[in-house]
Structure formats: structure tokens, C-alpha cells
Nucleic acid binder design. Sequence first.
DNA 1: TTTAATTATGTAAGCGCTTACATTTATAGT
DNA 2: ACTATAAATGTAAGCGCTTACATAATTAAA
Lengths: 336, 336
Amino acid sequence: MATIYEVSKAAGVSLATVSRVINGNARVSERTKEKVHKAMAELGYKPNAIAQSLASNRSNSVGLLVSELHGSFFGDMMSSIESMLRDAGKHVVITAGHSEAEKEKQAIEFLISRRCDALILNAEAVSEEYLKSLLDNNIEIILINRNIESLQERCIVLDNQLGGYLATKAAIDQGHRNIAYISGPHFKEDAQQRLAGHKQALEEAGISFDSSLCFEGGYHESEGQDGFNTLFKQKNTFTALICANDEMASGAMTAAREHGLSIPNDLSIIGFDNVLFARYLYPKLTTVDNPIAKMGEMAANWVLSNIYNTKTSTPINHLFKPELIIRDSLGALHAD
Amino acid sequence: MATIYEVSKAAGVSLATVSRVINGNARVSERTKEKVHKAMAELGYKPNAIAQSLASNRSNSVGLLVSELHGSFFGDMMSSIESMLRDAGKHVVITAGHSEAEKEKQAIEFLISRRCDALILNAEAVSEEYLKSLLDNNIEIILINRNIESLQERCIVLDNQLGGYLATKAAIDQGHRNIAYISGPHFKEDAQQRLAGHKQALEEAGISFDSSLCFEGGYHESEGQDGFNTLFKQKNTFTALICANDEMASGAMTAAREHGLSIPNDLSIIGFDNVLFARYLYPKLTTVDNPIAKMGEMAANWVLSNIYNTKTSTPINHLFKPELIIRDSLGALHAD
DNA sequence: TTTAATTATGTAAGCGCTTACATTTATAGT
DNA sequence: ACTATAAATGTAAGCGCTTACATAATTAAA
């Protein structure tokens, strides 16, 4: 692999000049520019990004931490961030944290060690203190889906409580009073908030929260099934079931069908996130749209304008409002 | 950010000694080892991976090119590769090629410029020559889902033709004779092979291939709908529909339902890939399992044993055989 | 002890770039 | 033609590490 030195020899100029034409940040005469380009082409020269980073203390890459590399939700997030950053000539280094504090730390430290210019973090398990300590060490971070009071300007979050509220409200508006809920894991902030929204809607309608109508899942499909089965055994009087994400809603649908229930005639089901496959389910899932792709873009924008000083146009929106997407899995309560 | 130099000062030893305890590849007395560890802890020292790479010409990271960052299929692939490599202490740098030759090249060159020790490529658009030229430049690559005669030992592929065959054969075995097919884009190798398998099964059963019963889609859900609609308009006599992937199968299901058809009573549908949501569909999709996670692991294994000289245990399997997964969307043909 | 063989540590030369500063060359003003 | 100024290029010192080689300290053998 040719080095800048060989190019400079071939072109008959100095190292510095070659560096200048590579970076285009200093004036070089047309004539020498041509000579250098020719030499680079002939040698098939490709700058060594590692050496560039070391010398310039800039890597032109931004680190991205997601919980998982699979799943529609994270896929949308990665995808939107990558394409926006790539358009700006920046690169994305992706790592997975698996919702475990230790793994998240490892991943973040990997990104730091690779000298990413900024980190976009979907960190769920790591402590608030740890995140603040990153800032103290001059690591530029922006958080997606995590709200830290003192770091507001570096957080991009969804109003999860509103989302939870909208879902339950929709059921109430259709006449439902017996509403079950399958929650995400309580250690996750968003799960708590969605549940809080659910309770808020219940309270507003004068319905008291019944903990035997609430199940804690882990956001996976199987826990939607478990949740339904458990709830159904405990108290099979509910006519609507709100799930804290679409995966669990799908699982619940399957389980409900296995119990011979028809959706939405016997049971209405509402999801959360509006991931791609919510539309493929049968019946099509009524759910709360989580504009994760837009949030990802916003994070990418933040990086571009705050770290790379480009894209100053779009103002940064820190709090996104979810919307209810009405499809077929929610029906009106009818008298039996 | 502390450097190795500061650590050496604090510990009262030389740079080289610190480097030795970091890398653990040379003998250092217990006493100094302790001193160094203490100094590192106190300074919060983290090795600069960039500098390490530059000096050692090893990055301990492997590059991964996928077509897209979203989608179950790629999610599974990324996920399996990442977790296996992470367990071995290696890191993965992921990029997306979007099935366009130019973008794939860019992405590959990015990975090379970051001095990845090896590249795992799911390259669909880039030419065979280009891939070979990488090898000529001593870039270590391993291809997933792409078969190049002269690079057999660096290819990990699925027997797509067998998969296509199995799907169509299953329909034939259930008595179907009028079988439509929604193909993937013909420029993709796997799409061609799956179609070839379909034709093979037809021929074997003495059914002649009817091109008006075949639609070329792009592997997206919407093209499943388009496909069904087009085919149904052209010739609504088919009783089974084979789709080249699950997304399109899902789209076709939706479209079929909109036409008032019941699945599998009026129409049997078979997918391909067995992505996670195939199980969530209603009715549950009969499909051909694509062991992409295992293939990803195999690729990771190849890298570990061939590049990093670890994990010599598992022999590398280059050709994976798909299996039919029988669920509910395929039914027997009944007399009308 | 003395010497040879080990083991532990230090010295210094890079890895392939960037960039401040110095120097040379071109351009313009008079 | 002769400066004064601006533009183009070169020189060399790092960036934070690794690693061959040299040296010093320790241990074992005689």
C-alpha cells in the first residue's frame, strides 16, 4: 500500500504538498495539483485514515451505540443516522450495548479509543454519572432516547408518557374500561414513562389502576405471549390490551388467537413504536408512532452542526411527540 | 487523555515497559507490572487504539459490509457476527452498501482505510474483478452470500437454488399445479438461483414454466403487493404463490386478503428466509429457512482462525443447505 | 567468587500522516 | 529593474504507540 512519501517522490514534490492536495485546505498551484493527482492514481494511493487521525486528531467518524443490531427499531435508527452522516462525508462506527452496563461501557470505550469525533448513544443501562464523566473528559456525546435533566441540550427523546397516554386514551375513547397493559422492563426509562402515560389516561377517565391487569415484559415477542397468558389467567375480563411495544403486541395477538379470541371483536390490541411490520400483522396493528428515524436524523444533525460546523440550518428538536396510528386492531367496545 | 508517556513517568519506568504490560506479550516482573497498573488506574489511562494500529499495523477490528442496516435479515447477520467477534475481543466496524456498486466500493475503501484486519463482505453490486483486486492488494476478505468460482474458499453461501426448489416442491406435493412466483431482482445472484430452483421443481413435476405467472420484485414488501396484483390481473388461476423472500410474501398476503382471498384456503403462500416476523404473520408463514445467523458466525469463525489464528476448532462450512419450515400459509389443493 | 545464561528494562527508530514555521518563487506596484 | 507583498512549496517536529536491539539486573552453574 503506497504511502504519501512514495507519492511525493513520484510527483517530485514534498510530503507537505501532497498532504495539501489530499486535504484541499491550502493553496496549491494547478500544475502541481495535477502532478500529484497523477502520481496518486498511478500508485493507487489511498490515504491511511489511521495515520491521518493520529496526526490530525480528527477521525471524521462518529460512533454509534445501539442496544441491539437487530430489530426494526434499531435498524431504522442506524439506517437514518448512517445515511445522513454519510451524505456529509462522515462515517459511522456502530457498536451494540445489549442493554448491559458493562457491555455498554466497553462499547463506548471502544468508540473513544477509535477516536470518534462524537458519539451518538442509545445507552440504556449505563449510569447518569458515567455519561457525565464522559463529558468531563471532553468526549462529545448526544443521547437518543434518554433524558438527563442536566444534559437537556444533549438529549433527543420521545415523549413516552404522552405515547402511553395516547394509546390508552384511544382505547377508552372506544368505550373500553377494562384495559390490560403489558409493560416493558421497568429498569428502562421509556418503559416506565409509557406506563405512567397509561396510568394517567386511566386516572383521567376515572378508572383505577389494577396491578393484576399489568404485566412486566422485556420488549420481546415471547413476553407478549407470556403476558397475555398470564393476564388472561388472572383476570380474563379485559377488552383491550395495550402493549409497550409492537413486538409484544404481536406476541399477544398470537396468544389471544390461540385462546380463540378474535381481534378486535373480542379484544382490542394497541402497540407502540410503529415498526415496519406493524403493518404486516393481521389485523394491522393500531399503534403509537415512534419517529425514531427522525430522531436519528436529528442526532446526526446535531453532530454535523455542533462538531463539524456544517448543517447549521435545521434547528434541533429535543422532544418528539408521538402520534397514534389507527389501523385495525382497535375496535369499539360493543355490548355483549 | 493520558498518554503512555505520562503513565511511564508516573510509574517510573520506560515507555516500552508500559507498552509491554498493556499488551502482555513480553515478560515484565510482577513488581513493575503492579506499579504500571497503579499508574494507569490513577491517570485513567486508555490506550489510543489509533496509535496502536498505526504502530503495530493491526487494528483488532474487522470490517463488515451489509446491504442495509435495517431489515431482519441483515440484523441477524450483523448481530451474529458482532457477538462472536466481540467474544474474541475483536471489534466490528459496520458499513452499508445499499446494493449500489459505487457505495459498496466507498464503504469497502473506508474499511480498508481504517485498516481493518479483515473484511466480511455481503457485497451484491460490486464486480468480481473488483473483489479479486482487493485480494491482490493483500486485503483479507470473506464473502457472504456471494459465490465466486475462483474464490471458493473465501465464500460462504446458501444453496439458494435448493431453497427455491424446496419451496415450489412443497407446493407441488400439496397438489398445486398452478404456481405463481414473485422473484427478487434479477441482478442479484440469489434471486436468480431461487428462481432457477423454482423452475427445476416445476420441470421435475412436468409443469411448464409460464412467464406470465412470474413477477420480478425488489425484495420489498410493497413489491409483494404489486406482484400479487399484477399476477392476479394477468391470470388469476394460480392456487399457490412462491415469493423469493418473506417481506414480499407478507405484501402478497395483504394484497390477497384485500382481494377477498383466504389463506391458505384460496391461496397458499410460501416465503423465503424465515426472518423473525415470518412467525408473527397471520397465518404463520411457511417459508424456507435461511440460516443467515449461522453463516455469519461461520464467517466470523473464518476470520478468527485465518486472520487471528484462534478458534481453529470448527471446520469452515462453505455451502449451507436451506430447509423448509412448515407453518400455516401452505395448504393442500382441494377440488373446487 | 566468577562467568555464562536468563530475565527484565531501557533506548530509539519508526508507523504515515498533519501542520507550524521557514524558505523560495511569482506578482504587482512604483 | 527593485522592492514589498502574496502565493507556493519545503523542512521538520510531532501525534501515541510498538518493537528490534542494546543494556542492566538477576540467577544458575562451575
